[in-house]
Each structure stands twice: as structure tokens, then as C-alpha cells.
């Protein structure tokens, strides 16, 4: 019996904040980031793209993100939500204060992504990457099976990134990048087309980076729905969104820094309608 939910898609918001662009790490170099990402929502985009209320639901991921340069062209990337928490609020009668549906929570390991990124060209920043989404999280928990720290499916994302760095002025660096990807999903989930744009600007002698992002997911609508699977399943599929986001990363020392970001959706289908936030500490060996 398949049990896959709305919240599975919410992890895409987290993934979209980790776009490393087309630039590989140099051989032996490391980029590490410890971050806390969270999303709390009490409404969602329906299949009509409109907003409906839902019980307040929270998702919190404490995540390690690491890049390592195996060669000057090949970079290995790990995204590991070491602690993932999913909760739903109590539902209480406003009329007589009676507890109608008790809230529940689950804590556990989230779904881990492992990526190999290969720089196609040394002269122009273009890379191709393969990400394996491992179903290491808990796909179903709670009295209704509606809590999860992962989506329970093994997916494979092939992605192409391209970009360019340049100087806006003598002291202001900048870059832009774009990505397109195909995400092959299993266990009845529809495959997805992913796209993204990113631009960044380095201020204060490149100690402070301000980054803007636009990301999206379009479903191929080739998976299952509630009408095509067994009657006892609770199943959500074909989620889509276009989101915007921003991040500020500040190098406190030459290599250590702090970052804060948010992302929110312009539009969506079967997805939470609330901004997600992230704060983190990073170590950048390339500096």
C-alpha cells in the first residue's frame, strides 16, 4: 500500500535553496553547511491553484550539506537532513474548547540526496549532475499515517547547470546561473521538470553575498492519483510550484560564515502556501 503525501513535496523548497550552480569544487576542497530549515503552514494550494485552509503543519530540518572536489571537474555533494521533525497542531472546538483531533509529531532522519556533479567545460561554467534521492526518511507515521520525514520513494534527478561570474565594479563581484532538470520519481509519483534561475552579488569585498532565486517544478502528470490506486491509500501527486527566494551569506572570517534565506511560492498546486526559512553556518575552503 502506497502512502505518499502533500508534505513530501515540501522538501522541494529545501532542495531549491541548495543550488550550487555550475561551478565545481577544486580537487580536495570542501564546502560545508549546517543549517536549520523550516516551514509552517495553515493553508495550501489546491489542485485548482487556489488557497484552502488546513490544520497547521510544521516541518523542521536540521541539515548537513557538503560538497567535496574529487577532481577539478568532479564534485560529490551530500544533502542530509539529520533531524527532521513534522508535526500537526491540535484541533480544538471554538464552541466548547473540546479537543477534537489531538496533534501529533514525528522526529527522525530525513531523505538524503547524493549528487555527482561534473563540469563539462573548463572554460565555460556548465555542469551536468546526477542526484539520487534516497528514501531514508520515515514515509508514514502518526495515527492517520500522515506524518513523515521523507517521501518514501527513490528518485533520480538529472540536471544541467550553466552560469557566468563577472565583476560589476572593482569591488563588487557577481554571477548568474540557470538550471534545468528531469526528476524521475518512483512508487507512483509523477516525473518532474525542474528549472531555476539564480543571481548573486558580492559586497564588502565579496564578504557579503546577496542572492536571489527563482525555482519551479512542473509535473508530467504521469503518476497515480487517488482514483487509480487501492481504496485505502492516501495519495497526493502532481504537485507543482514556481517559487522565489533570497539568501544573504556573510563571511565572518575568511572561510567561516553565516547565512539566512527564505523561499515562497508565486503559484502552486497541491503544495503548502507559506514561506520557508533557513539559517545556517558554513565553511568554504575555496576562499
Amino acid at each position: 500500500m502506497k502512502k505518499q503525501y502533500i508534505v513530501a513535496i515540501l522538501f522541494l523548497y529545501a532542495g531549491s535553496l541548495l543550488a550550487g550552480g555550475p561551478w565545481p569544487q577544486k580537487k580536495g576542497q570542501v564546502y560545508l553547511k549546517l543549517s536549520e530549515w523550516w516551514l509552517v503552514f495553515d493553508q495550501h494550494y489546491t489542485d485548482q491553484g487556489l488557497l484552502d485552509p488546513n490544520i497547521t503543519t510544521g516541518l523542521f530540518n536540521t541539515t548537513i550539506y557538503a560538497e567535496y572536489g574529487f577532481t577539478d571537474r568532479l564534485t560529490g555533494i551530500v544533502y542530509a537532513p539529520l533531524l527532521s521533525r513534522n508535526y500537526m497542531n491540535n484541533l480544538i472546538s471554538a464552541t466548547n474548547q473540546e479537543l477534537l483531533v489531538p496533534g501529533e509529531a514525528i522526529n527522525g532522519l530525513g531523505d538524503i540526496d547524493i549528487t555527482a556533479k561534473y563540469a563539462i567545460s573548463r572554460s565555460f561554467p556548465v555542469s551536468v549532475s546526477l542526484t539520487l534521492g534516497l528514501p531514508t526518511g520515515v514515509p508514514s507515521a502518526g495515527s492517520e499515517g500522515n506524518l513523515q520525514t521523507g517521501d518514501g520513494e527513490f528518485n533520480q534527478l538529472v540536471q544541467i547547470d550553466a552560469g557566468q561570474g563577472f565583476q560589476l565594479s572593482e569591488n563588487i563581484g557577481a554571477y548568474f546561473s540557470a538550471l534545468v532538470g528531469f526528476n524521475n520519481r518512483t512508487r507512483g509519483f509523477s516525473d518532474e521538470f525542474r528549472y531555476g534561475l539564480e543571481a548573486g552579488m558580492g559586497l564588502l569585498n565579496n564578504r557579503l553575498w546577496l542572492i536571489g532565486r527563482l525555482n519551479g517544478v512542473e509535473s508530467f502528470q504521469n503518476g497515480e492519483t487517488a482514483a487509480t490506486i487501492s481504496s485505502t491509500s492516501i495519495f497526493s501527486n502532481n504537485s507543482e510550484f514556481t517559487s522565489y527566494g533570497a539568501e544573504a551569506a556573510y563571511y565572518v572570517t575568511k572561510r567561516f560564515g553565516v547565512s539566512a534565506s527564505f523561499a515562497s511560492a508565486f503559484r502552486g498546486r497541491i503544495i503548502a502556501a507559506a514561506p520557508s526559512y533557513s539559517v545556517g553556518l558554513f565553511y568554504d575552503m575555496s576562499k
Partner: peptide, 18 residues
Amino acid sequence: FISIFFFSCIGDDFIDDR
């Protein structure tokens, strides 16, 4: 980071069911 853990506690939603 500690404050985030408190923020992630289960709260109450009220519904008008009269």
C-alpha cells in the same frame, strides 16, 4: 537553534463548529 525547537512545538488550531 534552541528557540527553533520551541517554535516547532505542537500548538492549537481552533475551528468554529457551532
